[in-house]
């Protein structure tokens, strides 16, 4: 349960504990007397989560770098869509594209699919083993560069290497 092929998972398990600690503190508004039940609850949560979702590779530093990128881009996404909404002619030329994944299956792909729905002009529509169908609001935009950037950031976050692209996009 704890270690996979001699890999040291303790840092990841401890960081999960820290996450649940912060959650409990938030939910109880830091009431000191709640910790006698909070402590055991956190231990139980760490144990359960380790069984249900074994710790994979996760680079916290890359995650922290992703946060400002995501916040800024999603703000731009909101501004972009608001501009199209209020423009009398509603400028857009929607298209459905298929993006061949280079990320490994599981969490990295899901993370990417969810992120791009909140980024400017892209909406993840169908997630397959190797293809992600994306509804693009403006086919003239540079959405491909955007998608590749997200993909690379997510790959670094999950310490995964990108599969060599087989050309077809």
């Amino acid at each position: 349960m704890i270690s996979v092929k001699g890999k040291n998972n303790w840092p990841l398990i401890i960081s999960r504990g820290g996450l649940f600690f912060v959650l409990w503190w938030i939910l109880t508004d830091g009431v000191a007397s709640s910790w006698w039940i909070g402590g055991p609850a956190i231990l139980l949560a760490v144990a359960t989560s380790t069984i249900l979702l074994p710790p994979g590779s996760f680079v916290w530093y890359e995650f922290l770098k992703f946060v400002p990128f995501f916040l800024l881009r999603s703000l731009l996404g909101g501004i972009d869509v608001a501009w199209r909404v209020f423009h009398p002619a509603m400028p857009m030329s929607p298209v459905l594209i298929e993006y061949t994944h280079r990320l490994p299956t599981g969490m990295p792909q899901v993370f990417m699919a969810n992120s791009i729905s909140l980024l400017p002009g892209t909406l993840s529509t169908e997630l397959d083993q190797d293809v992600l169908k994306i509804h693009v609001l403006d086919s003239q935009g540079n959405f491909l560069a955007e998608l590749e950037e997200v993909e690379q950031r997510v790959a670094r976050m999950f310490d995964a290497s990108l599969k060599v692209s087989e050309g077809g996009r």
């Binding site: 999603s74 996404g77 909101g78 869509v81 199209r84 909404v85 509603m90 929607p94 400017p120």
Partner: peptide
């Protein structure tokens, strides 16, 4: 205003989350 369900989703998801 938007013409189909996909574009409406774009508007609703992104604008409301930023809001």
């Amino acid at each position: 205003r938007f013409p189909d369900v996909y574009t409406r989703l774009h508007a609703l998801t992104k604008a409301d989350n930023v809001g």
